[in-house]
Amino acid sequence: MTESFASTRPIYLQLADRINRQIVRGDLKLGDKLPSVREMAIESNVNPNTVQRTYRELEAMGVAESRRGQGTFVREDVHMFTELKENLKREEIEEFVRVMHELGLQDQEIQTSLAAFLNRTKEENDD
């Protein structure tokens, strides 16, 4: 079964987000061809028009480019890659900090807890 989408955000944006993450993780390399609209539609169980909208969005973001008659490709632009990674990182940190603040934690406490947690995971991995 295909992974489903959260109900609160437009599907085309969620799909764009998935592709961005695949690029940052390295599952999709710079210069790689994205699946054709129909392939992507079948793979992710979404409407082909939605995939087209996703690809247009990725182009507008500077992440992808369409080449006439060939399809849509991840742009070969290291600067774009760095920026994409930074953006995703910041988004995740913002979300994490927001939740921590909601739980009533102060910045200082978040920092020490995070450091302690990372240390502990590191020790576990070293064992």
Binding site: F5, A41, S44, N45, V46, N47, N49, T50
Partner: peptide
């Protein structure tokens, strides 16, 4: 639920 993502 099944078709929401495939509908325009």
């Amino acid at each position: 639920k099944e078709v929401e993502s495939v509908l325009d």
